[in-house]
């Protein structure tokens, strides 16, 4: 256990040290300006103390972000508009719908591409092109388009933007997974005169399970990113993306950073959950590594 943890903790410690150093350097000019206006000069220890506790620091040091996270999750009621649990839940539910939609879409497209050569030639290039368009540019258009169609509910737009990012890894992974059976395996089923459906159900689909979960791990993280991006231009006031935007508009970096960390923690948790499901499923299928 410790052998696995030690390298991670070492890197973490290095990052925290760099972060503190950067916070001192970046927050110092403001502190010195203020002191200069009051006709004072700050000694080194005074300066450091100041950079660690500014109300609107350029770069909030780790402990300030930690305190803010604690205040907005544990100490606030979850129904409060200032609770990150509340905003996290808004983002999470949109992520869930986007993930569901994107995964379904990715799976269906993968099956189509594996079974129909025309679909591979016509669909695959567009799927790749779809991922080269910056989602930040596309998100407002999706929102405007949906509004023009009379769908004002922001959750729908967010889920679609989320699905847009999420379907691609599932598509690519599943195309590979469904094609993973060796020629010999396909020959074997041919000797049984198995139908196309049986080949799919008994061979291609089970063979693709390890690929599916790997794709789902990437997909769910992408779905979360998509949701947050979807929350930026919607003028949303709820969700982690909205918190980041509001923090930016009101010049409150601590709020931005705490929302950012909340999003990262959420992503980590989601990927871990999918990873555990993967372990369980593969063990149940006798395919655990």
């Amino acid at each position: 256990m410790f052998r696995n943890l030690a390298p991670v903790l070492t890197v973490l410690a290095v990052l925290v040290v760099i972060w503190y150093g950067a916070a001192i350097v970046m927050n110092a000019p403001w502190a010195q300006d203020r002191a200069a206006k009051q006709g004072k000069t700050l000694g080194f220890s005074e300066l450091v103390a100041n950079t660690m506790s500014q109300e609107r620091p350029r770069l909030p040091p780790p402990h300030q972000v930690g305190q803010e996270l604690w205040k907005t999750t544990v100490e606030k009621k979850v129904t409060s508009k200032r609770s990150l649990v509340f905003h996290g839940w808004i983002t999470l539910s949109a992520t869930f719908w986007g993930f569901l939609l994107g995964t379904t879409l990715g799976l269906l497209m993968a099956v189509g591409i594996v079974y129909f050569r025309t679909l591979e030639m016509s669909l695959m290039p567009w799927a790749i092109v779809s991922q080269t368009i910056p989602i930040v540019a596309l998100a407002p258009m999706i929102i405007v388009l949906l509004a023009a169609l009379g769908i004002e509910e922001r959750g729908v737009a967010k889920a679609i933007i989320s699905a847009y990012l999420c379907y691609f890894p599932v598509l690519v992974g599943m195309v590979k997974g469904l094609r993973s059976p060796a020629a010999m395996q396909l020959d074997l089923l041919k000797t049984y005169s198995a139908s196309g459906f049986e080949i799919f159900w008994k061979l291609r689909l089970p063979s693709s399970v390890p690929y599916l979960f790997t794709s789902l791990k990437v997909g769910i993280a992408a779905a979360l990113v998509g949701t947050i991006v979807g929350e930026l231009p919607t003028g949303a006031i709820r969700g982690l993306g909205a918190r980041i935007l509001i923090g930016d508009q009101f010049g409150n970096p601590i709020m931005i950073w705490s929302a950012l960390f909340a999003a990262a923690i959420l992503a980590g948790a989601l990927v871990t959950i999918v990873g555990l499901l993967q372990k369980l499923a593969l063990r149940k299928m006798g395919m655990a590594e």
Binding site: A182, M184, Q185, D187, T191, V209, M285, G286, M287
Partner: peptide, 12 residues
Amino acid sequence: GYVFQAAGLYPW
């Protein structure tokens, strides 16, 4: 019945 060079059993 056909037997291939590799057993090719389904691991699952």
